[in-house]
Amino acid sequence: MKLYDYILSPSCYKVRLMASLTGVKLDIRPVDFHPGTEHRSPELLALNPAGSIPILEDGDLVLTESSAMLAYLAAKAAPEWLAGSRPEEAARVQQWLSFSGRLTASLGGARLHEMLLRPGDIGALQTQGVAALRELEAGLFEQSMRGMRFLAAERPTIADIACFPYVALAPDGGVSLDPYPTIRLWSRAVRSLDQFLEMPGIHRLHELKPEPHVEGSEA
């Protein structure tokens, strides 16, 4: 399975993270998105005329939407990441998968503007980003009242992976995460998952490892 990947892209990171969590080995093909704009090269446009990355290629299956890639990885390797048989759960997974597109447009747009100097109305992008974060905070709070720590169930699903990256990287676009206690708890739960993978801008949870022991002491 080949992933056309950019290390700083949160959408590409969704796929790398999902692969790591589900134990799928990806063949990574780095794309010089910045500064080279290779995603708009003839070779990549031939694969994805929309000119976006990630692109996931497996035999003659070519996927260009990250949510579809998450569903594919989960279906192949770890179906417990998909929705179960309860209609509410299935609906919530779809709800948040669709919602993740709004995170990409708002928080992702703000991040590209603030970090890589891409054009955009930064004020509007940040306002939309805050609105999306508030919805997510409220949604996660309501889930916690139902005894569920994640967006669609007590266990994490592809919906959590679809939403996590742009949320965790919101500060890159000048949108603070300070006002969202429930998002903080959820983000921590995601980052504590076994085989969790970081990307630049999301630091290691150093507390998961014990303090190294040092012998001797000088004053």
Binding site: Y6, L8, P30, D32, E38, P200, G201
Partner: peptide, 15 residues
Amino acid sequence: TDLIHFQQTIFLQDR
């Protein structure tokens, strides 16, 4: 591209 991405990774961790 690998060389660029390695350095971008490092710098974005600092950002």
